[in-house]
């Protein structure tokens, strides 16, 4: 390619001297990738950091469940009919031997709670990854291909969404029989559709963007456009949805276990621990059986939800809670539009 000197009477070369605006240079925004920006915003968000710490703690506890169980000296499914139950057969409350009390069969609530965390988290992660994978694939295909493919896939999404989920889930479980695998499959079955819907919508709007048209005019194949131009722009909604899906999956699993259709006892899950608390109104005599599993469940789901919210704010500062910041970005947009 020839090297023309663009030195015509106008000074087009001057254009790049102050280039990046003085402000961004001053605050050091320049040359940072979008990912770094998001990370620095998250680091300065106390809510996000606290939630992240809670989640990490729970994960660590779950991983070291056997260790803790060994330290305490109680197995998760071990029944201590003597120590854990009063002479009349009622569970004992929190004491120095049973940190959070014992359940109706004299098992250590604390140890069971940690084992329950292990199960809840594994189910939630596996189901979330599965649902995200299927949802992204289906949504992207529908949005990108459009036409008949889109019509069929959208119909599947809508039908799945209009199914009475829990009813369908329990009849499904009743047929196949409750187990860990069934639980994961059922959660995926009812979680992929909302993701696919979001991804499809995003894909539809991305494929109308000029940069996709530009890629097309350069001769890029559909496959390349999907990979290089569409997928990176889907990362944000997928990531946000992913963090918000984890708590939903935890709740779903707990609900199934509560109804006796999730992971079966004696394996401890938060859902079947709560089911034990509600059977025969046990919680009226042993409040700890209701309070601790509920609190654990709430803490973890809340932490994931808060983190998801923060991640979304950090990824898209226009959505942030703080009004003034919002307003100014809007003003800037307006000024650009002028």
């Amino acid at each position: 390619m020839p090297e023309p000197t663009v030195d015509a009477p106008t000074d087009t070369t001057l254009d790049n001297q102050p280039s990046v605006s003085a402000a961004s240079a001053r605050t050091g925004v320049a040359a940072r990738s979008p990912f770094q920006l998001v990370w620095s915003r998250l680091r300065h968000d106390p809510t996000a950091m606290v939630s992240a710490v809670v989640i990490v703690l729970v994960i660590v506890a779950a991983i070291s469940a056997p260790l803790i169980s060994g330290l305490v000296g109680h197995g998760p499914d071990e029944q201590f009919r003597k120590e854990g139950l009063t002479p009349s057969g009622l569970p004992t409350g929190p004491n120095d031997q049973f940190l959070l009390g014992a359940d109706n069969l004299g098992r250590d609530l604390f140890v069971r709670l940690i084992y329950g965390a292990q199960l809840s988290l594994i189910v939630a992660f596996v189901a979330t990854v599965g649902a995200l994978g299927i949802g992204t694939l289906v949504g992207m295909t529908a949005g990108f291909m459009r036409g008949k493919v889109d019509t069929v896939l959208t119909w599947f999404m809508d039908t799945t969404l209009s199914l009475p989920q829990l009813l369908f889930a329990i009849s499904l479980v009743s047929l196949v029989g409750p187990s860990f695998g069934t639980t994961v499959v059922v959660i995926i079955l009812f979680s992929w559709a909302p993701i696919a819907r979001v991804v499809r919508g995003q894909t539809l709007s991305i494929r109308e963007k000029e940069f996709v048209e530009a890629a097309r005019s350069l001769g890029a194949s559909n496959w390349r456009i999907m990979r290089v131009d569409v997928l990176p722009n889907l990362v944000v909604p997928i990531l946000v949805y992913g963090t918000l899906l984890i708590p939903q999956a935890i709740v779903f699993e707990a609900t199934l276990s509560f109804l006796g259709l999730g992971v079966l006892p004696p394996t401890a899950t938060w859902g079947n621990m709560l089911a034990a608390a509600s059977t025969g109104s046990m919680y009226t005599i042993a409040w700890w059986m209701l309070v601790f599993p509920s609190a654990a469940l709430l803490c973890v789901t809340l932490a994931f939800n808060l983190l998801g919210d923060s991640v979304r704010d950090a990824l898209d500062p226009r959505q942030t809670l703080f009004a003034k910041k919002r307003r100014v970005t809007k003003l800037k947009k307006k000024e650009i539009a002028e």
């Binding site: 708590p247 709740v251 707990a254 609900t255 509560f258 709560l274 709430l298 789901t301 939800n305």
Partner: peptide, 8 residues
Amino acid sequence: GLSVPTFV
């Protein structure tokens, strides 16, 4: 609200 399961 989003974190609490109905049964809890």
